[in-house]
Design a protein around this nucleic acid. Structure first.
Length: 178
DNA sequence: ACAAGGATACCT
DNA sequence: GGTATCCTTGTC
């Protein structure tokens, strides 16, 4: 996936479709003279203000304003006072949407993902490209549709039955040959 | 089962 | 300024 293709997908496709598309792509981090890389295995889509599970549901705030900005940037925030969540901002400007990266190969849980890649609030609003030292690569791994689980998102029960039950979480269940 | 932990959002 | 809540994890 070249840079232009990636950017077009971030803006052009709907966020749930893009979330699934990100499975099998590689997260790459260059920090302190070394490179950390791993395949994305689990993601969640947060799509628009209507989504009651999304930070954006209550409108634009200091924290979530990055979601309302241009796609192709990182949205990083702190939860529970100790864990950073790594999200890919998607959609057009003023349409708040993002994809939470919940897991990469051998690293399960969104808080662990951020720690693994040495990502904190400093990466918030930074571009997803080489200049920021944190980006996404397509290494040609194909994920069969039959190998993708689609189900409800985690930790959003407060959003109510309708939104908490939406099948907006995707993860690879088998057939990983990266 | 539950504490840790600090920012955030939404009150007064 | 107070406080309930939070897109979680590790240890109990």
């Amino acid at each position: 996936m070249n840079r232009v293709t990636f950017r077009r997908r971030l803006t052009g496709e709907n966020t749930p479709a893009l979330a699934r598309f990100l499975l099998g792509k590689y997260l790459v981090r260059r920090v302190n003279g070394r490179t950390i890389s791993s395949m994305i295995t689990e993601v969640e889509a947060y799509d628009g203000r209507e989504d009651k599970a999304s930070h954006a549901h209550r409108g634009k705030t200091k924290r979530n304003k990055v979601m309302f900005g241009p796609s192709g940037r990182w949205y990083v925030y702190l939860v529970y006072g100790m864990h950073y969540m790594v999200n890919v901002v998607t959609g057009p400007v003023d349409y708040p949407a993002a994809i939470l990266i919940r897991g990469v190969l051998a690293v399960n849980g969104p808080g662990r993902v951020a720690r693994h890649f040495h990502v904190g609030s400093g990466m918030n609003d930074k571009p997803i490209n080489r200049s920021s030292g944190f980006y996404i690569l397509d290494r040609g791994t194909r994920i069969r549709k039959a190998s993708i689980y689609q189900g409800r998102r985690i930790g959003v029960q407060y959003a109510g039955r309708k939104w908490a039950g939406k099948p907006l979480r995707f993860f690879i269940t088998e057939g990983i040959d990266g």
